[in-house]
Design a protein around this nucleic acid. Structure first.
Length: 208
DNA sequence: GACCAGGTCCTTG
DNA sequence: CAAGGACATGGT
């Protein structure tokens, strides 16, 4: 079967199962911060860190930029790789402010904005796409470990760019649609995939 | 105690 | 380009 057709079938099944979920509904500043913190980390720990940053009054791009390194490290310790993430976070926030803040960046066309984000140390494709899609409302599909895993389960493989392109061909070009689709993939993976691999690969549950 | 988590970067072959 | 290691805490 054509890979795009498999992706279509997958998305149909997931939409039928999970419906109109809302996925990451946060202000741009928190999306920027959360996108970095969630790297290789469970979301629950990211939420704790975001709450700590908020309590410290530095849960924004400007806040992280002006805060002491040690203060940020303390707040994000629970997400792991905390030294690395603090450095990445401060670098990213600094860069965003230098480019006119979220406000200024939002005037850039999506390709230019994506390049600007990718140019920051610690911002790879997934992080950039998360910020684009959830922070800036741009239709840029996010491919994460769950997406790759689920795609593998239905026989669709390829590079990050390949998978991203497949979803973007199949879905209507809309950030909300992309976000919900990605959210459903994650919901499904959390429900059926156990410790790194699909338990019994129950994709038939949603795919047929 | 072992293993894994919503990545990214750097180094090797 | 593919593979392997480093980065680190928290939950099962």
């Amino acid at each position: 079967m054509d890979p795009d057709e498999r992706v279509r079938a997958l998305l149909r099944g997931l939409a039928a199962r999970y419906g109109e979920i809302t996925w990451w509904d946060a202000c741009p500043d928190e999306v920027v911060i959360g996108a970095v913190l969630t790297q290789q980390t469970r979301w629950e720990n990211v939420e704790r860190a975001l709450a700590r940053l908020r309590e410290a009054g530095i849960g924004t791009v400007a806040g992280v930029d002006r805060a002491e390194t040690a203060t940020v490290e303390e707040a994000v310790r629970c997400t792991g790789f905390y030294r690395l993430k603090t450095a990445r976070l401060k670098g990213l926030c600094r860069r965003i402010l230098d480019m006119g803040g979220v406000e200024g960046l939002s005037r850039l066309p999506t390709p230019a904005l994506r390049e600007a984000l990718l140019a920051v140390r610690g911002v790879g494709e997934e992080t950039a796409d998360s910020i684009l899609c959830y922070g800036f409302g741009r239709p840029s599909f996010v491919v994460d470990a769950y997406t790759k895993r689920i795609c593998g389960c239905v026989g669709v493989t390829g590079s990050y760019t390949d998978l991203k392109a497949a979803f973007e061909r199949v879905l209507p070009e809309d950030a909300g649609e992309y976000g919900r689709a990605h959210g459903r993939v994650v919901e499904y993976a959390k429900e059926f995939c156990v410790s790194g691999r699909c338990d019994e690969c129950r994709m038939k549950t949603v795919c047929v």
